[in-house]
């Protein structure tokens, strides 16, 4: 904070220093996490690796899977150092190594695109698209409804008094628990496809957007409101010329929260109902068949999707706020 406010040094050296200040620690932390992950693979996978090696004819101490069951993973790894490399290349490891997840991600996305099957049902791109479409649809519904409610709350005293406490209280309730019910009920009424999932996403993103927007629309100070009153501005004019512009930072912040919530809603909406498409269905299928590499790759696909969506809103935020002269 203090360094940034003091006159900025210019030139290439400063740029390099800024990058190394911001990027280097993050890279170090990420590298440490990946390193820990590789280390964790050893005790997690050593039991099955030893069993496989024993079946293949290798000499393992102590012999017999039953003997080893209650032994610690680290002790086993130290006693059988020559088997340790095997833990990183199992087909169904308890904890797949980072490179295995990366390869699976590439195999189910980039490689399939290169061979022209980018949208086959085995492609993660296809599943990500299914999840993305219901996320975005739900997010749009939720955002529009949330902004609408916020406008109502700001302009109507009754709505503020009656609805606002419920809107805040609803954020303490684990709404996600209703996801399976919404899917089943809407299916039984004949609503199928992406709409039920989108409604869960909409519901989850609705409240953060509504609460954030109420805050944003109320952010103009009494001075500014008084000024518009002295101009004899109507309520609509006050809204368009003062409240709406000053709510923009809040709007984008709550949209980021809403988008993350919408993605969680879509994924969870795909889980409990035996859905066959979408990232949530991939997670569920992977857990049914013990395909751990598939679970992890679906998880990373979901993480990348979340990062891209939230990052996209961040980019729009930066562009819009800059244009409005409110660049943060």
């Amino acid at each position: 904070m203090t360094d940034a406010t003091i006159a900025k040094p210019s030139g290439l050296g400063a740029g390099v220093r800024a990058v190394s200040d911001a990027v280097l620690p993050v890279v170090a932390v990420v590298a440490a996490i990946i390193g820990l992950w590789y280390l964790a693979c050893i005790p997690m996978n050593i039991h099955t690796a030893l069993t496989d090696a024993e079946r293949a004819g290798a000499v393992v101490t102590p012999a017999g899977a039953a003997e080893r069951r209650d032994m610690g993973g680290i002790g086993l790894a130290l006693a059988n150092t020559e088997i340790v490399p095997d833990v990183f290349s199992q087909e169904r490891p308890r904890l797949p190594a980072p490179h295995q997840v990366g390869m699976e991600l590439w195999k189910t996305t980039g490689e399939m695109v290169l061979t022209g099957r980018g949208f086959s049902k085995r492609s993660l791109l296809y599943h990500a698209w299914v999840t993305l479409s219901s996320t975005v649809l739900g997010f749009l519904i939720g955002t529009v409804a949330g902004v609408g409610l916020a406008i109502g709350i700001v302009h109507s005293r009754v709505m503020n008094m009656a609805v606002m406490p419920w809107a805040i209280a609803s954020q303490t309730i684990p709404i996600l628990a209703v996801a399976p019910m919404i899917i089943v009920v809407l299916n039984s009424v004949g609503v199928t496809g992406i709409l039920p999932k989108a409604l869960i996403s909409a519901y989850l993103s609705f409240f953060p957007v509504a609460v954030g927007m109420v805050k944003g629309l109320r952010s103009p100070g009494a001075m500014q409101l008084d000024l518009l009153a002295t101009y004899n501005a109507s309520q609509a004019e006050t809204f368009w010329k003062l409240r709406m512009p000053s709510s923009m930072p809040y709007f984008f912040t709550s949209m980021k929260i809403g988008m993350a919530a919408a993605l969680v809603g879509a994924i969870v909406g795909e889980m409990p109902t035996g859905a066959v498409r979408g990232l949530g269905a991939r997670l569920l299928a992977g857990s049914y068949y013990g395909q751990t590499v598939q679970i992890w790759s679906a998880l990373f696909a979901a993480a990348i999707l979340a990062a891209v969506l939230v990052g996209l809103i961040g980019l729009i935020q930066r562009a819009v706020l800059k244009k409005m002269g409110m660049a943060s």
């Binding site: 990420v30 308890r94 994924i267 997670l283 857990s287 679970i295």
Partner: peptide
């Protein structure tokens, strides 16, 4: 200071991810 500047962005990033997805993995473990 170094650790903080590294952990804060990573933590912020993780907080926005759909972490419930790890549920099947942890149930397996």
């Amino acid at each position: 200071d170094f650790l903080r500047r590294g952990l804060l962005p990573v933590g912020n990033f993780m907080a926005a991810l759909p972490i419930v997805g790890i549920a099947p993995i942890l149930v397996m473990w």
